[in-house]
Structures are given as structure tokens and as C-alpha cells.
């Protein structure tokens, strides 16, 4: 089955008010080309579930987000995401703030068709107080109380990988696939961008096959966009563009997101965007971060 679609076609399948999960982690391997496509669209009232970075900041700044489900939003070496911070401090963002592991459990519950997964995580903290919908329940097996982490069912998951074939076999060969497999499993539809489209023979190599974390039946559509994770990282091809993120951060203090958007996103194609950065060759020279 050929699942190739363009980024525009993918975003055209999304609807106002949908719950959308975004793969990656902070400034690492985010499906940024798809985020930019959403920013160019008239989509609105989205519920976003993310281990957040600039994906969340940009969507908040552009007024696309009705509700955010998150444990953190950070650009790593710029610890506080400037536009997420603005949205929160202006008091116009509905949030469900939970622990990183609770988010994982919520995705797993959705993937497994369970209404919730019991966990001790969150007990004794304001996570419970600030989320009145989060239920604390008695256990049928012991005398303790447990947080019933509800399933985080996603209408769509957006994920960027390094290699994929046209049937939707996706490879993440970088050091961590984060929770991307759980985002895909929790979603009704999964839209995947990849840096390189490969022949299916690519996966004859057992090492490559070991780096495939979900079955192709879970991939709804594939689009090859080299550099599609920029300014976040996509190993082995490129690292985080900290220089660009500094520039982005500066817009929060001066000019605002609309100025950033006018320079890099509005009325521009992905090709235009990459040309402004210096082209794909420049992107692919950005070194991986050493922690």
C-alpha cells in the first residue's frame, strides 16, 4: 500500500477541535514541518498532547491551542519556552499539567483500550488539586488509594522519523525513540514525516528492522521532508539548531511571534523556509549535542 501524501494533504485531514499528539521530546526530533503547515492553515481549538518544545510554543503563540496536556515545555539549553510562558502568564491557556510518566501511562491506556491505568504518581501533589477531573480511587486489592490516569486518546499523532518506506515502515535510528511509539498507538491516525524515503529492502538489515517501533498498519500517511525536524534535531542527520532557537527566543522579547512567523512561515513554503536557514546542506551540518 502506498501511503505517500504531502504535508498539506496531511494537515487537510485534521479538523478544528481535534486532540493531537506530537512526538519527540523538547527540542529533539519534532515534526516541525507539519507544525509549520498547521500554522499556515486555519485549524483552531486544538488539544495538544506533547513532551513540549518549540512545537507547543509556536502553536500557543499562533492561537491554535485550546488546551495543552503537558509535563514540561522546554528548549533544553533555553530552559523556559518563551511563547508557552507568555501564553500561560497571560492566563489564556487551558492546561492539564501532569507528570512525564503519567503522560506515558495515558498514552498506553489509550493504546491498550483501557479507560485508565492506576498509578501512585501524582499522589500528595498539586497535580491532583489542579486537575479536578483526575480521579483518585480505592484499589480492589490493597488499602491504598491510586491515581486513575485516564486514557489520552488522540485523534491524530504527528511524528518525524529519519527513514521510512512508502508503506509506512518507520525507522528511528537515533539514540532514543522517546514515547513516539505510544503516541502512534494512542492515535486514531498517524501522520509521519521522514528525512529520507527508502526502498523496503532497507529493512532487510536486521539492525534497521530493530529500529522500527510500530507496525506499518499504524502509519496512516508518510511524507518525505529532508530537514523536516528543523530547528529540532533528527539524528543521524542533524542536531538541534541552537542558533535558530536563540533567534526564535529573541522574537518573544522583540517583535513577537507574528514577526517570527512573517519571516519564516507565513506565505512561505517549506523550501522557502529552508532557503532562509541556508538550505538542507547547512541543516545537515548542525552537530549533535553532547550532554
Amino acid at each position: 500500500m502506498n501511503k505517500l501524501k504531502t504535508a498539506t494533504e496531511m494537515v487537510a485531514e485534521l479538523r478544528d477541535g481535534m486532540t493531537i499528539g506530537i512526538g519527540g521530546w523538547g527540542p529533539r526530533r519534532k515534526p516541525m514541518a507539519l507544525i509549520r503547515e498547521i500554522l499556515r492553515s486555519d485549524l483552531k481549538d486544538l488539544t495538544i498532547v506533547s513532551y513540549g518544545g518549540a512545537d507547543v510554543g509556536m502553536l500557543c503563540a499562533a492561537g491554535k491551542v485550546k488546551k495543552l496536556v503537558f509535563a514540561f515545555v522546554s528548549l533544553d539549553f533555553i530552559p523556559l519556552e518563551p511563547f508557552f510562558r507568555k501564553a500561560r502568564e497571560q492566563g489564556n491557556l487551558e492546561v492539564m499539567e501532569i507528570d512525564e510518566g503519567m503522560l506515558l501511562l495515558g498514552l498506553r491506556a489509550a493504546a491498550w483500550g483501557c479507560p485508565f491505568i492506576p498509578t501512585q504518581v501524582g499522589l500528595g501533589t498539586d497535580i491532583i488539586k489542579q486537575n479536578p477531573d483526575l480521579k483518585v480511587i480505592d484499589s480492589p486489592y490493597d488499602d491504598k488509594e491510586w491515581v486513575a490516569m485516564p486514557a489520552l486518546k488522540l485523534d491524530a499523532a504527528l511524528v518525524h522519523v529519519d527513514h521510512a518506506d512508502e508503506r509506512g515502515v518507520c525507522q528511528i535510528s537515533g539514540p532514543d525513540h522517546y514515547m513516539d511509539d505510544w503516541f502512534v498507538r494512542a492515535a486514531n491516525k498517524s501522520y509521519i514525516t521522514c528525512d529520507e524515503l527508502v526502498d523496503s529492502d532497507h529493512f532487510n538489515n536486521p539492525e534497521a528492522a530493530r529500529q522500527v517501533f510500530w507496525e506499518r498498519s499504524l502509519t496512516s500517511a508518510v511524507c518525505a521532508i529532508a530537514g523536516g525536524a528543523h530547528p529540532t534535531s533528527c539524528p543521524p542527520f542533524y542536531g538541534i539548531d541552537n542558533k535558530h532557537l536563540l533567534q526564535y527566543n529573541k522574537y518573544a522579547k522583540e517583535g513577537g511571534f507574528s514577526a517570527y512567523s512573517d519571516e519564516f512561515i507565513n506565505n512561505k513554503t517549506e523550501q522557502d523556509y529552508q532557503d532562509l536557514i541556508g538550505g538542507i546542506d547547512t541543516i545537515r551540518q548542525i552537530p549533535q549535542t553532547k550532554y
Binding site: A71, P79, I127
Partner: peptide, 8 residues
């Protein structure tokens, strides 16, 4: 940042 992994 957000609560990150502190509750857990």
C-alpha cells in the same frame, strides 16, 4: 518548566 518527573 512544568512539574516534569517530580511527582513520580
Amino acid at each position: 518548566l512544568g512539574a516534569r518527573g517530580l511527582p513520580g
